[in-house]
């Protein structure tokens, strides 16, 4: 890593606290939003995950150079762990129920996946029907404001691939979008 303003933070506890608090103030909201989305919209659990991510940050030997990308990466990992544990918990009956719901939902919303998009509401529904990785890249870009390089770090891929994913996703939406204020 190149020069970091937080380089000396490891030695000085006060500087360390300030560095962590600065990261916290700057990113907590975006992180909670991101984590909550990954956890099915559960804000409380999203907070838990983000808190855990910051606690892990505090346990790092040298937090200089660790920033947004690291926080998103770790938060994402925590969320995935949580979901994995929960999916093991789900009983067979639950799975059937979820599948049945899923079938019903997809039948009812074939339109949302491919129809034209007029309102914000329809746009959000269309977003939900994008492949997971496209959704995630879009959220990291347009909700959290990460750069291609940062998204690549978080999602474990290359920046070029992130560009391709975003391009594909937006391109798909663009072709279906009815201009704002225009006819539905």
């Amino acid at each position: 890593m190149p020069f970091s303003p937080f380089r000396s933070a490891a030695a000085d506890p006060d500087a360390r606290v300030r560095a962590v608090e600065a990261l916290l103030s700057e990113h907590e909201r975006a992180l909670v939003r991101y984590a909550a989305r990954l956890l099915g919209g559960d804000v409380e659990r999203g907070r838990d995950a983000v808190q855990e991510a910051f606690l892990r940050l505090c346990r790092q030997e040298d937090i200089g150079g660790l920033g947004r990308e690291w926080l998103f990466t770790v938060t994402r990992r925590i969320c995935i762990d949580v979901q994995r544990k929960e999916s093991r918990m789900t009983t067979i009956e639950d799975t059937d129920a979820v599948d049945a719901l899923g079938d019903a939902a997809s039948a009812a919303s074939a339109d949302e996946a491919s129809g034209s998009i007029g309102s914000d509401d329809e746009l959000l529904k269309a977003l939900h029907h994008l492949p997971d990785r496209q959704q995630e890249a879009i959220r990291l870009k347009f909700e959290s404001g990460l750069s291609y390089a940062e998204i690549a770090g978080v999602m474990g891929t290359s920046a070029g691939n992130v560009g391709w994913i975003l391009h594909t996703a937006i391109q798909g939406l663009r072709s279906r979008l009815v201009p704002e204020g225009g006819a539905r």
């Binding site: 606290v17 608090e21 939003r33 804000v43 907070r47």
Partner: peptide
């Protein structure tokens, strides 16, 4: 979801930061 962490969570993180690695 724009609320961020609770005050207690922030305080605890600050404490952990002070304790360090």
């Amino acid at each position: 979801t724009t609320e961020g962490l609770t005050g207690a969570a922030r305080a605890e993180i600050a404490l952990a930061a002070r304790r360090g690695a």
